[in-house]
Every structure is written in structure tokens, then in C-alpha cells.
Nucleic acid binder design. Structure first.
Length: 550
RNA sequence: GGCCCGAUGGUCAAGAGGCUAAGACACCGCCCUUUCACGGCGGUAACACGGGUUCGAUUCCCGUUCGGGUCACCA
């Protein structure tokens, strides 16, 4: 038995399996040619972030469009930063947006697929098996340097303006013999396990990134940490092991990882794995003081996907917006295929934008108004009810008290070839519907300045007798026109414009006065429909209240 | 600072060695119209800078500037 074997056994006495066994346990997937296996592998350090949803969308689309597999892996190797319920929130959020993984970690005790476990904290044995093998082969070694020592080395390197890190002369533990290392372990010293990097900084690695193109960088020569003191792997090592064993074909992740690719490639090489294809996507940015920066969980409310749910953006809207950012062709495709399932969009990683897009709320709102305008009243009412139950109970109580009336509100001017686009998110609804539930304050009404109070009062008092709820839109307006001559108003707007001085105003002004008295607003959807919904009694009461204060 | 990546209107973006440099959002104007919204029409607004290569660069090359990322026992 060699000294390295002894060392390896001493370091990992509990490892009973071999890498070969795991290779056999997780065989290559039997998928059709071209099928891509992708994944979303968030770490539960907070709630679902827009960036994660975005990356998940792209991974999902990539897998689905090729008949592949999209799975979920939980990267919970940093217990210090873990947030309670984070994993569940992320999982629930993804499903909510239609990105349900085909396999993976599904919550406490829930695992699907043949390539698990997918929670890294459940994979310690696997990682240890591979590290042990590396130690035995002399490709990894224990390092006993303390944080203080490491800091001292770094400062030294900085003062000499050298590249910092654990490499070359700084890599003291690399030069320990297996016997010396064993001795330190026996002495009870804590250690991490480092890779014995075969890299050379003067050589260059080249790789093809599916979105950024060909990239060339110096080779990695850092003896990076594989296993932390607590025996838990670092991201880099876990990435290599997991994505290999889970047979990921395409690693699609944020471009903050791009500078680590030389490390990852080296890891795959040392472990004897075939590396996956990489696609590094640009993050969604935010503008601040004229500069771009990544959307920040702390500073930007819209970074949390929860924000969109709370604001009441339909899931379709958020997804469509994400897709327009992800692929410039999406909007055109959507225009040609208005009803198509968004996931049937022929997505292509190579057409993704290379630089990060600024998050544009205006654009989201526009996308969302289009989405909402295509829904029927039934759906809109249902969604608003659902949203309000959660985020605006007072409003919910009003709607729920009379669902038919509520649906009536959202039916006005809906449907047809030119639907209204007033509502972009459900939180717009309370204000949109306010006057249906509350009489305007008669003393606060603002009428057009061109009209005299006396004329307004006359309009208000002469209208009630001609109002009949059974009138259709045309009859309703004809009745208003018929009232005009006696009031000194011109029934026809066009005619009025030819001779403005001959009248006090026109039929439109008359209806505006009624509109204001009934709704308290100058701008509303079709007044005739509003009146019919409100009911004659209510209308008369509102008109009278308005007239009484003049 | 080292190493990577990037740069087309305010934003998102097509584009290609020669075009009047698309389109969408936002903004402005006009039309339609009982208000608003919708819709239609039109408008303001861009190839970061300096060198090359070329008959001709916004497009290719180099440099500069600016922006972004990364340099952990975090992911």
C-alpha cells in the first residue's frame, strides 16, 4: 500500500464506493440525438430572484425544444447563507411560472429521476469518493493553512504586486509529503482538500461559449479548494461532479461564471470527465446614477419574483417579457403567432444578446397590457379575485360580494378587435373600478372650465327623465343629443366646431358632465355601459347629489 | 491592478464591407372619436473615440475611452 493510499484512507475512512460504481449507477442517458439536458441549480440563499427565473426559462426552453430534460438541483453547500424556506420558495415560484422541472429535488424528502439525489447536502459520500480517488492518485492533497496564514500570503503577494492566490511558492502544503500530511492529520490539524493543479499560467485555454463565442484565457494554476474544512465541496468541485454524474449536456448559467471556466475545464480533465457545453447568459441589469449594474436582491424590489406576484402581473406577462429579453426574435414571432404556446418558440442560444439588458418596467407594462387585453372578462375577473384575495382584501370583499357585478365591470369594452388596455397588472384594478363601489364626492367634482355652473346644473337636472337603462349605446347617446337644443348645446360635434360661438358646447360636453357626475372622472370606459351596470336608482342618486351642490 | 467580455436612438434591439441604418417600448404631433383607452398616420432620436486595411468602413484589425464581470474554505 502506497503512502498516498494510506493518506487517502486516513482522510476518508468511510468511503466504501468507487468512482466506477457511480459511473455505472448513473449511466449516460438514453435520449434522442440532439436532446439537451439542462438544469437550474440555485442556492437557497434567499427567495426566487428574477435572474434565476430568467436562467430557468432559458434552460427550460433549451431542454424542451430539443426533447431533452430539465432538472432542478439544490446547491446548499453554504449553510451560513442559507435562508429558511428559500428552496421551497424557489421551487414553488418556478412551478408557478410554468417551469416545472422534469426531475430533481422537489422539497424535503422529495426526489425524482434516476440521477439523484439532487440536493448537494445529500451527496457528501459521492464527493468524498471522488476526492479520495484524487488524493490516492496524487491529484489532490490536504492543506493545513489557516485563514491567517492565507491572508498573510495574500498581503505579501499584493505588496509585491504579484498575482494573488494559492499557487507556485505560495502553495506550501502542495509540497508536503504524504507522510508529513498524515502526521499533521494525526496531530488533529484541520484541513481542506485542494486540487494539485496541473495548469500553467503561461498556457491558454480556449473554449466555445454558445452565447459569447470563442473565449481564450490563461490556464488555471491555482490549487483551489475542493472540499472545505467541514468536508463539503466548493461550487467548482460540486459542479464538475454533479453535472457529469447527472449527465448535463449544456450548462447554461449567469456570465459571472465565465472567469471560472478554466477551473471547471481543468476539473473535468483531471477527473477524466467529458466537459459539458457552456452558455453564459448576461444578467438583467438595472440603471442607477447613469450606470448599469446587476439587478440587486437588496436594492431592487423587482429583483424578487415575488414583487411581480404582489403587483399582480399575470405569469404570462412576466414570461413573455423575459422571453423578449432573452431573444430578440420573440416579439416578431409572437406577432405572427399570437395564440401559440410561448414555449413552442424556436429558441436559439446563439441568438441571445451578448450584453446585459436593462430591466425596463415600461416595456413589461406594455407587454402585460397586451396580454391582459387578450383575456376575456371571465378570466380577468377570476385573476383579479385571486390576486385581491391575497393582496387586497378590502377590494376582494367588494368584488366577492357580487361576482356578477364585478365581472360586469371588467366586461366593459372588453373583447372585440380593439380592446381597452387600461389594466396591465391586477393592482391597477382597485383604482380602475373605484367609482363602481363608491359615489364620488359631489363637492370635489371638476367640470370643464368652459361650462358655467348654471348650465351644468341644468344638464344634470334635465337628464334623468330621458334616461332609460334599456337603451343601447346608440339610443343612449341619441337621447343626450335630443336634449342638446333645449340646453343651448349643439347635438353634433362637427357642426359645433364650424360654429363654436353659436352654442354653449356640444353633445360631448353634455356627456362629459354626466360622466363626471356619475364617476367623478373625466376619462372612463363607455359611460352607457357604466350606467347600466350601476343601475338607474344609483345613477339618479349620483346625478342629484351632483346637482344639489351647484 | 491582472484576466475576461462588451459598446447601434432614453430603453430593448435587427443589420451588413456600399441600404435613406429595420422594428418594439417610451416621448411628441395629427387623425378617428361623446371622454379616455384602442387603432391609424407621422415625428424627435443612434452606429463611443483615434488610427489603420480598403475604391469604400458603423461593419474587419489595432489602440483609447467607457461600461460590465471576476480574482474566497460564497455560490
Amino acid at each position: 500500500m502506497s503512502a498516498l493510499d494510506t493518506l487517502a484512507d486516513r482522510m476518508f475512512p468511510d468511503v466504501t464506493h468507487t468512482p466506477e460504481e457511480y459511473e455505472a449507477l448513473y449511466p449516460a442517458r438514453q435520449l434522442k440525438e440532439g436532446a439537451r439536458v439542462t438544469r437550474i441549480a440555485p442556492s437557497p440563499t434567499g427567495y426566487l430572484h428574477l435572474g434565476v427565473l430568467y436562467a430557468a426559462t432559458i434552460n427550460y426552453l433549451t431542454a424542451k425544444s430539443t426533447g431533452g430534460v430539465f432538472y432542478f438541483r439544490l446547491e446548499d453547500t453554504d449553510s451560513k447563507r442559507e435562508v429558511d424556506g428559500g428552496a421551497e420558495d424557489i421551487l414553488a415560484g418556478l412551478s408557478h411560472y410554468g417551469l416545472t422541472p422534469d426531475e430533481g429535488y422537489g422539497g424535503p424528502g422529495k426526489e425524482t429521476g434516476n440521477y439523484g439525489p439532487h440536493r448537494q447536502s445529500d451527496r457528501a459520500e459521492i464527493y468524498h469518493t471522488y476526492v479520495k480517488d484524487l488524493v490516492r492518485k496524487g491529484l489532490a492533497y490536504p492543506c493545513f493553512c489557516t485563514a491567517e496564514q492565507l491572508n498573510a500570503v495574500r498581503e505579501e503577494q499584493e505588496s509585491r504586486k504579484e498575482r494573488t492566490g494559492y499557487y507556485g511558492a505560495a502553495a506550501v502544503c502542495r509540497r508536503l509529503s504524504p507522510e508529513e500530511a498524515l502526521q499533521k492529520i494525526e496531530a488533529g490539524l484541520h484541513y481542506v482538500v485542494r486540487l494539485r493543479s496541473p495548469g500553467d499560467e503561461s498556457r491558454r485555454v480556449k473554449f466555445d461559449d454558445m452565447v459569447k463565442g470563442t473565449i481564450e484565457m490563461p490556464e488555471n494554476d491555482q490549487d483551489l479548494v475542493l472540499l472545505k474544512t467541514d468536508g463539503i465541496p466548493t461550487y467548482h468541485f460540486a459542479h464538475a461532479i454533479d453535472d457529469h454524474l447527472m449527465r448535463t449536456t449544456h450548462v447554461i448559467r449567469g456570465d459571472e461564471w465565465i472567469s471560472s471556466v478554466p477551473i471547471h475545464l481543468q476539473l473535468f480533465q483531471v477527473l477524466g470527465f467529458k466537459p459539458p457545453k457552456y452558455a453564459h447568459i448576461s444578467p438583467i441589469m438595472k440603471e442607477e446614477n447613469g450606470n448599469k449594474r446587476k439587478l440587486s436582491k437588496r436594492k431592487d424590489p423587482e429583483a424578487a419574483v415575488r414583487y411581480f406576484t404582489e403587483e399582480g402581473y399575470p405569469i404570462q406577462s412576466v414570461m413573455e417579457y423575459l422571453l423578449t429579453i432573452a431573444s430578440s426574435g420573440f416579439e416578431d414571432w409572437r406577432k405572427c403567432n399570437p395564440a401559440a404556446d410561448r414555449f413552442s418558440f424556436p429558441f436559439n442560444l446563439k441568438k441571445m444578446s451578448v450584453s446585459g439588458a436593462l430591466f425596463d418596467l415600461d416595456k413589461l407594462n406594455d407587454v402585460s397590457k397586451n396580454v391582459v387585453s387578450a383575456m376575456d372578462a371571465d378570466a380577468v375577473t377570476r385573476y383579479i379575485l385571486e390576486w385581491a384575495a391575497q393582496y387586497n382584501q378590502e377590494f376582494h370583499a367588494k368584488l366577492a360580494a357580487d361576482p356578477v357585478f364585478a365581472q360586469g365591470i371588467f366586461s366593459i369594452d372588453r373583447g372585440g378587435s380593439k380592446p381597452r388596455k387600461d389594466i396591465g397588472k391586477w393592482s391597477d384594478a382597485p383604482d380602475y373600478a373605484a367609482y363602481f363601489y363608491q359615489r364620488p364626492d359631489p363637492t370635489g367634482l371638476e367640470y370643464p372650465e368652459s361650462l358655467h355652473a348654471a348650465d351644468i346644473k341644468e344638464i344634470l337636472s334635465s337628464y334623468p327623465p330621458v334616461y332609460d337603462p334599456s337603451q343601447d349605446r346608440q339610443q343612449w347617446f341619441d337621447a343626450i343629443k335630443a336634449l342638446c337644443p333645449a340646453l343651448g348645446f349643439c347635438p353634433e360635434v362637427k357642426e359645433y366646431k364650424k360654429n363654436p360661438d353659436g352654442y354653449k358646447g356640444h353633445a360631448g360636453d353634455v356627456s362629459t358632465v354626466l360622466r363626471i357626475a356619475v364617476t367623478g372622472r373625466r376619462n372612463t370606459p363607455d359611460l352607457c355601459s357604466i350606467m347600466r351596470l350601476l343601475g338607474k336608482e344609483e345613477i339618479l342618486a349620483r346625478l342629484q347629489a351632483a346637482a344639489s351642490v351647484l
